[in-house]
Amino acid sequence: MKNKVKITALTLALIVSMASIVGCSNNSSTSAEASVSSNSSIESSIESSIGESSVSESSAEISSETTSATESSVSSNSSAVDPVVEERSYSDEEKYKPQPTKFSDYSYYPAVNGYEYSGNTSKVTIPSEFTKCPGFYYDNNVKEIIVPETVTKIPKRTFSGCKKLEKLVILNPDCEIEGGILPKDSLINIYCYFRSDKTIPKQRLLGLQGCGKAFNTLGSHYNGKNFDKYMHDLAEESYE
């Protein structure tokens, strides 16, 4: 009987021991799984953070590129020669006074939204920023004026103050020239592009028939021999 009791006790002890071992094993496995799960969660969090950072950086780059493109578009569409003086507000008194510009020899008049040459040099090359030729309305020492290709229009009386002008060069073959741009009765060497067919010189630029009418409209008398002497076709000769 005592032997049976001992065997039963040993059996129970063995069962308890095995259960403890299995429990430890299960706990170990659970801890390992929990650890793996935790690591996976951390990795997912890091990947998510990296992904969000990349998206954020991409958004910032796109935003920056869009901003740059917009600024470039605004800049290219702006017709202002000097935005600082053209876009500011003026009092009634200031509107009729010459305003200094980024071009030392040119003043801006707010009342007419126009520029005027205010220098005193003998040879003038108009800055390429101008699309409409600035005025030379008052007496000056200018003897030669070069109008760049960027200028698309020369308004009436533009060079009326150039009493000493000897040479005018117009480099844009499609420049619009209004009548009476030169001092009255002046004979000035003019370099520009004639009509390709040469039948009616300057008709393309002036929109008029005949040499006499055309050049009287310019403000001078270029006809007959005077025409051959003072008019120079840039397609055939240099103005240098």
Results as ranks from 00 to 15, higher is better:
residue 161 G to E: 03
residue 127 P to R: 01
residue 178 E to Y: 07
residue 169 V to E: 07
residue 146 I to Y: 10
residue 159 F to E: 14
residue 125 T to G: 03
residue 170 I to N: 05
residue 135 G to P: 00
residue 163 K to V: 12
residue 165 L to K: 04
residue 159 F to I: 13
residue 124 V to Q: 07
residue 179 G to H: 02
residue 111 A to V: 14
residue 170 I to Q: 08
residue 183 P to E: 06
residue 133 C to Y: 07
residue 117 Y to N: 11
residue 154 I to W: 04
residue 161 G to Y: 01
residue 113 N to K: 14
residue 144 E to K: 14
residue 142 V to F: 01
residue 118 S to F: 00
residue 173 P to N: 08
residue 128 S to A: 15
residue 166 E to Y: 03
residue 156 K to E: 14
residue 175 C to F: 07
residue 182 L to I: 10
residue 148 P to Y: 12
residue 164 K to S: 15
residue 121 T to H: 02
residue 140 N to R: 04
residue 166 E to L: 05
residue 117 Y to R: 04
residue 112 V to Q: 12
residue 148 P to K: 10
residue 153 K to S: 12
residue 160 S to H: 03
residue 116 E to Y: 04
residue 172 N to P: 11
residue 135 G to F: 15
residue 173 P to G: 04
residue 120 N to H: 05
residue 111 A to M: 12
residue 171 L to R: 09
residue 116 E to D: 03
residue 115 Y to G: 12
residue 131 T to Y: 15
residue 115 Y to E: 07
residue 114 G to T: 09
residue 139 D to K: 14
residue 143 K to S: 14
residue 172 N to C: 09
residue 148 P to G: 10
residue 159 F to W: 06
residue 169 V to Y: 03
residue 115 Y to L: 11
residue 151 V to D: 12
residue 128 S to V: 11
residue 170 I to R: 01
residue 160 S to Y: 05
residue 124 V to A: 05
residue 180 G to E: 09
residue 135 G to M: 13
residue 135 G to L: 13
residue 142 V to S: 00
residue 119 G to S: 01
residue 179 G to D: 10
residue 115 Y to K: 10
residue 181 I to E: 11
residue 183 P to F: 09
residue 174 D to H: 13
residue 165 L to D: 05
residue 182 L to N: 00
residue 184 K to C: 06
residue 179 G to T: 06
residue 165 L to R: 01
residue 171 L to V: 05
residue 176 E to Q: 13
residue 182 L to V: 09
residue 151 V to E: 13
residue 121 T to Q: 09
residue 129 E to T: 08
residue 172 N to M: 05
residue 183 P to N: 06
residue 125 T to I: 14
residue 114 G to C: 07
residue 143 K to C: 07
residue 175 C to Q: 01
residue 157 R to M: 10
residue 130 F to N: 07
residue 112 V to F: 13
residue 178 E to R: 05
residue 116 E to S: 15
residue 175 C to M: 07
residue 126 I to T: 08
residue 124 V to H: 04
residue 185 D to Q: 09
residue 125 T to P: 01
residue 174 D to P: 00
residue 153 K to F: 10
residue 185 D to I: 01
residue 130 F to D: 10
residue 177 I to K: 05
residue 133 C to L: 12
residue 181 I to Q: 06
residue 166 E to P: 00
residue 175 C to A: 13
residue 180 G to I: 04
residue 113 N to D: 15
residue 123 K to C: 01
residue 143 K to N: 07
residue 143 K to H: 11
residue 174 D to N: 15
residue 151 V to Y: 07
residue 150 T to A: 08
residue 125 T to L: 07
residue 169 V to P: 00
residue 179 G to V: 03
residue 176 E to S: 10
residue 164 K to W: 02
residue 163 K to N: 14
residue 131 T to V: 13
residue 112 V to K: 03
residue 161 G to H: 02
residue 149 E to K: 15
residue 131 T to P: 00
residue 125 T to V: 15
residue 121 T to F: 02
residue 161 G to I: 11
residue 148 P to V: 06
residue 184 K to D: 14
residue 123 K to S: 15
residue 167 K to Q: 05
